[in-house]
Amino acid sequence: MTYDDYLDGKPVVVTAALTGGIHGKEANPNLPETPEEIAEAAAACEAAGASVLHLHAREANGERAFSTERFQTVTDAVRAATDDVIVQHSTGGTGAPTELRAEPLRTDPAPDMASLDMGPMNRGQHLTSENTRATVAALHEEMRERGIKPEVEVFNDGHLNEVLAVADDLAAPPSITLILGPGTLSVPSPRSLLHLVDHLPEGAEFTTLGFGRHQLPLTTLSVLLGGHVRVGLEDNVYYRRGELAESNAQLVERAVRIVEEFGRPLATTDEAREILGV
């Protein structure tokens, strides 16, 4: 993916990350947690132009849920509330064992895509989301067995080395999410995103995910670089400095305005399936 893709008017795939697994309504009361709330947000994001929905599940009290049963409830509700979206389940889970993190892959039907975190990420002083190579390999293997397209998550440029090491095993084209933000994520800057894009595997499609205040500028740059974009309350609870976002759809609507203002068409879900190889 290149600037030529921008010039050629390649469609942009917009992913909405609705809920996440870290913060909840204590951070933004508009963040959807129950299956009903997630389904409502999903429908609104689809109407706003998102073709991929990145899903996490929660317990009734907002705490993290990993079980197939809980994901089934969420994914059923989302599929019932939407016309045609690409359903993407998270397999992330700081501190949770690999076996539990594989459970979201076992819904019926299987998700179209699932996240595959390519390595560790520190959280504060005492906690690391480990994502050992053994964990990555186990999750990837189960995705292959179930026909699930990996959404390869690159937390920093070292993780691109990890992607390159398994690139031959990834279903074509590799669909890579470049994550820029604080701590052990890639340094959130335009130059950093350019560097990451320069080192993508041959033929890869990339989606840019900027945390917090970096979401808006890096979304814009991704559009110019021929990439795709991910927005949503999982990654950013604010609309602008000091102002909480009203909804996931509000963030999707802004991303869509940027995409259209820069002259790239928004990918339909059929186009997104073709572009991402789902």
């Binding site: 990350a17 996440g20 697994g21 870290i22 913060h23 951070a27 933004n28 990145h54 996490h56 998270s90 992330g92 889970g93 700081t94 996240s115 975190d117 990420m121 520190n122 959280r123 504060g124 002083q125 005492h126 906690l127 989301s129 998550e153 999410t177 994550i179 933000g181 604080p182 701590g183 994520l185 995910l209 945390f211 917090g212 205040r213 970096h214 999982e234 990654d235 950013n236 609870v237 604010y238 400095r241």
Partner: peptide, 14 residues
């Protein structure tokens, strides 16, 4: 303790 983004904006387990 969970590594949120700067300026009070939130990080996640993407």
């Amino acid at each position: 303790s969970v590594g949120d983004g700067e300026d009070g904006r939130k990080g996640s387990d993407p």
